[in-house]
């Protein structure tokens, strides 16, 4: 049994109505511990819906979802919040930092919900900021940072909780190519440490950095293949 197992999953909006939309139409997928998977698709393919359901932010209309052997498809909101707190961290395209909190407080916030003691929270937040090379900005407000720096803070927030899964929704979408590459390098580093990374993107070039590519189209998985990341391909060519 993998870390994530979804079976015959549907997400249907306005079901039975004239304007019915099948965002996910009978999708089955298995993701193992420590995988780096890119879920790729054009706008409207269902990839964001997939992330919302995999991330326990939304519930499917029908189907089964097992997360780390826990059935989560039809849990209560309280149970889903608990699962998110313990199992999943998010990195969003728009960073989603809280402007009224400074950088280290943003990083520490999810640990508050996990019940981590204040002193430990600060230390772990600073360690996470150190891991993404942004400790000097710990007391700054998010609005004082560049987009790349804000995304690093968002990554630090994801690291600090020590969740086994990081879901990154278009994490480089608002960044220039150089900064985007740095963010992807950090994600790859985390994957190297054993974290399961699920990367949602519309960009095939970004997806090429993952070890596996799952392509969605009109709510169906139309491709699921292992991928040799660009750097490995270049290394093999040189040997």
């Amino acid at each position: 049994m993998g870390l994530i197992e979804i079976t015959d999953l549907y997400k249907i909006y306005a079901e039975g109505m004239e304007n019915e939309v099948r965002a996910l139409d009978g999708v089955s997928l298995s993701i193992d511990y420590g995988e780096f998977v890119a879920i790729v698709g054009a706008s409207g393919s269902g990839k964001s819906t997939m992330m919302n359901i995999l991330g326990c932010l939304d519930i499917p209309t029908r189907g089964e979802y097992m997360l780390d052997d826990i059935p989560v498809a039809h849990r209560t909101e309280r149970e889903l919040a608990e699962i998110r707190s313990r199992k999943i961290s998010f990195i969003f395209q728009g960073y989603n930092l809280i402007p009224s909190l400074n950088v280290w407080q943003n990083v520490a916030l999810p640990m508050t919900y996990q019940g981590v003691k204040p002193a430990q929270r600060y230390q772990r937040a600073m360690d996470a900021l150190d891991a993404v090379g942004i400790t000097a900005k710990a007391e700054s407000r998010p609005t004082q940072l560049s987009g790349g720096q804000q995304q690093r803070v968002a990554i630090a927030r994801a690291i600090a909780t020590a969740s086994p899964i990081i879901m990154a929704d278009e994490p480089t979408g608002a960044l220039d190519s150089k900064t985007g590459q740095q963010v992807l390098d950090i994600l790859r580093g985390l994957h190297g440490l054993g974290t399961t990374i699920i990367l949602i993107t519309h960009d095939n070039g970004i997806a090429a950095k993952a070890e596996r590519v799952v392509r969605l189209q009109d709510g169906h998985i139309v491709e699921d293949r292992p991928n040799i990341p660009d750097e490995s391909r270049a290394l093999n060519a040189n040997l």
């Binding site: 919040a81 961290s89 998010f90 989603n96």
Partner: peptide
């Protein structure tokens, strides 16, 4: 609203 969404996404319970 967005702040509430962020907090819930990162694990805040309703009571929080």
């Amino acid at each position: 609203t967005r702040e509430i969404g962020i907090k819930k996404a990162i694990g805040a319970q309703r009571r929080v």
